[in-house]
Design a protein around this nucleic acid. Structure first.
Length: 294
DNA sequence: AAGAACTCCTGTTGGC
DNA sequence: TGCCAACAGGAGTTCT
């Protein structure tokens, strides 16, 4: 499920339970998710304290007192559930995924000192976990080529122009490329392009001037990417088909979608008479308005 | 070397 | 109701 806003929301939900906590026991219920777990995964976590829980792109990073970082990626269907020892599974304002109807897909359980229990559930197993030495993290293949954080200071029109210059790939594909801007996924790319009035089919390179500088479109796109992600984080991310039966607080940004999932509906741009259409680009659905997105 | 297609896996949904 | 195809928030690998 998770794009940047959802991963950040999960981080904020896990942080109160995990940061500063000691991992008393770990249940690893299978040998792999998308990739095999690292050697001696359970032993290397047991007894370790989590110094801090951070995020880079769509990765969650638990910094351990062993000098290693527990790196976690949620793939498409990864979710965490936090249960406190007093039975309180949820804290108001936190975003927590509902436990699935059965525990078939509960693959990892972290038991923390003090009794809190954190369960990782992932039906499709596109997520994964690994351990990387903290000092080598920036050069690690998973992170060496990761692009700029869109909520940091590095994202602006000039940065987009630099990255897109000379590219014939469609804007949609360029924005999904995690080595350029890190953290966008299918939903927020559709939303950002709709806000920016830019066609997902437009060649990415058209957002750079001949001298490599940013066009007005590039400046506009940088602004709306930041806006849409900030609004989504503030809303606790988006909750789609999952979690229908949870009493936990859910993301509600899905109600603010202007393009995603609106095939055949009138364009939500009040100045536009177009209709949202759905096309497929690199195997993924793209929702956009052919009238006001050029 | 860039860009598109294919791949991993399971669950849900919509059409007949 | 059952069956089957299409589709789902990701991204590494393999092709052209």
């Amino acid at each position: 499920m998770p794009e940047l806003p959802e991963v950040e929301t999960v981080r904020r939900g896990l942080e109160p339970a995990m940061a500063g906590a000691v991992i008393a026991r770990v249940e690893q219920r299978r040998s792999n998710l998308r990739f095999p777990f690292p050697d001696r995964f359970v032993e290397r976590l047991t007894g370790r304290r989590v110094n801090a829980l951070s995020r880079r792109a769509k990765y969650l990073l638990a910094d351990l007192d062993s000098g290693y970082v527990l790196v976690m990626h949620l793939g498409m269907t990864g979710r965490f559930t936090v249960e406190q020892p007093d039975g309180a599974a949820l804290v108001p304002g936190e975003f927590l995924y509902a436990a699935s109807a059965n525990d078939t897909h509960d693959h990892v359980v972290f038991h923390l000192e003090g009794g809190a229990r954190i369960t990782y559930n992932d039906a499709r197993r596109f997520g994964f976990m690994t351990l990387i030495e903290r000092a080598t993290l920036p050069e690690h293949p998973l992170f060496a080529r990761i692009g700029i954080e869109p909520l940091g200071n590095a994202l602006d029109g000039a940065a987009l122009a630099r990255m897109f210059a000379g590219k014939s790939a469609p804007l949609k594909a360029a924005l999904l490329d995690q080595t350029l801007v890190a953290g966008l996924g299918n939903i927020y790319v559709c939303e950002a392009l709709h806000r920016a009035g830019l066609s997902p089919n437009r060649a990415a390179g058209t957002l750079a001037k001949k001298d490599g500088g940013p066009t007005a479109r590039a400046e506009r796109l940088a602004v709306v990417i930041r806006d849409v992600l900030e609004e989504a984080v503030a809303a606790g991310g988006s909750t789609l088909r999952d979690y229908a039966h949870t009493d936990g607080s859910l993301g509600y940004f899905q109600h603010a979608f202007k393009a995603y999932g609106r095939e055949a509906e009138p364009c939500t741009n009040p100045a536009c008479n177009g209709v949202i259409r759905r096309i497929v680009q690199s195997g993924r659905s793209t929702f956009y308005c052919g009238e006001c997105q050029r």
